Amino acid sequence: MTSDPEELVRLQGYGEMTLRTAIATWMALEPRDRSSTAVFRIRDGERLASGEIAELASDWGIESTGEIRSRARETDRRWPEIVRGMVREAPLPALMVAFLAGVVVARR
């Protein structure tokens, strides 16, 4: 099926846009995020297969970049750094109280 690059589609989690924009956005996602993101045609609600998206991307010269990251994953990666910084700067008595409070909460 031939596809018009200006056809309106819905990219799951990103909203409505042209097919070319949706494919460029989809190709910029990390591979593990691509599997959970779908492209739907607005005119008939049909979901485009990932193979069809990859084929259209290669026809239109869109390369995979994998630069767009999920915000949830970015914050998950930052938490260890935040906690490490808090522990590094905290005085020892405060750390002991926090540890004991954690033990009490965990036992309940």
Rank of each mutant, 00 (worst) to 15 (best):
G66F: 09
S36F: 03
W60I: 06
A49P: 00
G61H: 11
R34P: 01
W60M: 08
D44P: 03
D59K: 14
R69N: 10
R69F: 07
E63W: 00
R43W: 07
D76S: 09
R78G: 03
G51T: 13
E63G: 10
T75V: 14
R43I: 12
R73G: 08
S36N: 07
D59Y: 08
R47S: 13
R43F: 09
A57F: 08
I68D: 01
E67V: 15
R47L: 13
I68K: 11
R34C: 07
R41I: 01
G61V: 12
R69D: 04
R71V: 12
A72R: 09
E74R: 13
R78P: 00
W60P: 04
S36D: 06
R34T: 03
R47H: 02
V39E: 04
E46G: 07
E52V: 15
R77C: 02
D44R: 03
S50M: 14
G45R: 07
F40G: 02
S50H: 14
S36I: 08
T37D: 06
V39M: 11
F40Q: 09
E55L: 10
G51C: 02
R69G: 07
G61R: 14
A49K: 11
E67Y: 11
S36T: 11
V39Q: 03
T75N: 05
S36M: 08
